[in-house]
């Protein structure tokens, strides 16, 4: 393709501007978290870690982190399990109403969180479980399962469909095939699904806000501080959460990559 120089330069600068817009709030919250001013402006104040000491001394925040960790871990495991079953069912079987089945499995993220939050709040209060950690776990499992389904289904699509029948022909039972053929093959995607769903759950606030009651997760705690007033503690919390998620994601990538490489050398 002929390339006009001017256009290329313009597009590159434009792309840079878009990245500045996208990263401005992320960078700003990290920078502000070490900044002494309550209302940061230019020029910036001095370096400080007082916002971090403030949250370390705040038992509510610590509690919120504990709740979030429990919720994220349990809903990640449940959602990944459900996602695996849905993906495998879609891969292996065909039956009437499969379209509907898949729609059910994939739709939840397209319903706005406030609506899901309201619906679940009403439903859970009928079941008498609003405000419990269980309620948040169930809600997040439903919301996260589609992501797990998508990730695992993509991996299954790369599998040779003859592998499974081959294992059966060689006398492996259905369960053994599942254990020794399907699971090892999908393992990288299962790990990614676990991390992804944990990250989604850790970040979800609207539904958690509706159903959580006194058991606040971290984003719900942030939301409540936010409603109050300007408080740079939010930046400190945000920076910690950001660092945690990034480490999780990179760890997952490395793990998956390592497994992949081992598998490749084994071949």
């Amino acid at each position: 393709m002929k390339q006009s120089r001017l256009l290329t330069v313009f597009l590159t600068i434009y792309l840079g501007a878009v990245f500045v817009f996208i990263f401005a709030p992320i960078v700003a919250s990290v920078v502000f978290s070490f900044n002494s001013d309550r209302f940061p402006t230019i020029p910036l104040g001095t370096f400080t870690t007082k916002w971090y000491t403030a949250i370390a001394a705040n038992p509510q925040i610590a509690e919120a982190f504990r709740t979030s960790a429990v919720v994220a871990a349990s809903s990640a495991v449940l959602a990944t399990f459900i996602g695996f079953c849905t993906a495998y069912t879609d891969y292996r079987f065909s039956f009437r109403g499969k379209g509907l089945f898949l729609a059910l499995g994939l739709l939840p993220p397209t319903i706005p969180a406030v609506i899901m939050g309201l619906a679940m709040l009403a439903w859970f209060s009928r079941l008498q479980i609003t405000g419990t950690v269980t309620a948040i776990v169930i809600a997040h499992t439903v919301l996260c399962a589609p992501f797990a389904t998508a990730v695992i289904r993509l991996r299954l699509a790369q599998m040779d469909p003859n592998l499974e029948p081959a294992a059966w022909n060689l006398g492996a039972s259905q369960w053994r095939t599942m254990r020794e053929v399907i699971l090892p093959f999908t393992l990288p995607s299962i790990v990614s699904a676990l991390c992804l769903t944990a990250a989604v759950s850790f970040d979800e606030f609207a539904v958690a806000w509706f159903v959580s009651g006194l058991n606040k997760t971290v984003p719900v705690a942030i939301l409540e501080i936010l409603t109050g007033n300007v408080d740079p503690q939010i930046n400190a919390i945000g920076t910690i959460v950001f660092a945690t998620t990034v480490i999780l994601v990179i760890a997952a990538q490395l793990l998956a990559g390592l497994k992949q490489r081992k598998a490749d050398t084994a071949k």
């Binding site: 940061p40 606030f205 942030i222 930046n235 959460v241 950001f242």
Partner: peptide, 16 residues
Amino acid sequence: IPFFTSYLVRTYAWQV
């Protein structure tokens, strides 16, 4: 990367 940062925290940063 933005998907792994809290939307709330980003909103707050914009507020400031």
